[in-house]
Write a protein that binds this DNA or RNA. Structure first.
Length: 105
DNA sequence: TAGCTGACGCAAA
DNA sequence: ATTTGCGCCAGCT
């Protein structure tokens, strides 16, 4: 099932609360890398764990498709595959070349 | 407590 | 451009 908001979730670890809070604020049309999310959440070396947290995200207000790899490649997308993830990003205005994100400056 | 598993990151080959 | 290897870490068994 899919809860409306991560903020209402009652049994999330502190790590995931912070991570989801960061992802929830990523503006439409922009992206952050897994590592950047980890750093902003206060766990600078937990990029990998952020990936796991995204893979298990169940909240509508956590736009996990806006989190991509540091080298610009899309990264995974449990619901629909990286192909759909790229499509959603393009639809939001994110610049891509093939399946690679073009980071602004 | 000890292992194992990934929507990762990065350097090296 | 790819692939491999290794370090990292939270979460689960």
């Amino acid at each position: 099932m899919r809860t409306a908001s991560y903020a209402q979730a009652m049994s999330l670890s502190m790590f995931r609360r912070r991570v989801y809070a960061v992802v929830a604020r990523i503006p439409k049309g922009t992206v952050l890398t897994y590592g950047a999310v980890a750093a902003r959440a206060g766990f600078p070396r937990a990029a990998r764990a952020v990936g796991t947290a995204m893979a298990e995200n169940r909240y509508r207000d956590v736009p996990c498709h806006r989190v991509v790899r540091a080298d610009g490649t899309i990264g995974g997308y449990t619901l629909g595959g990286s192909r759909l993830k790229a499509a959603r990003l393009r639809r939001e205005g994110v610049r891509l070349t093939g399946d690679r994100v073009i980071f602004p400056e």
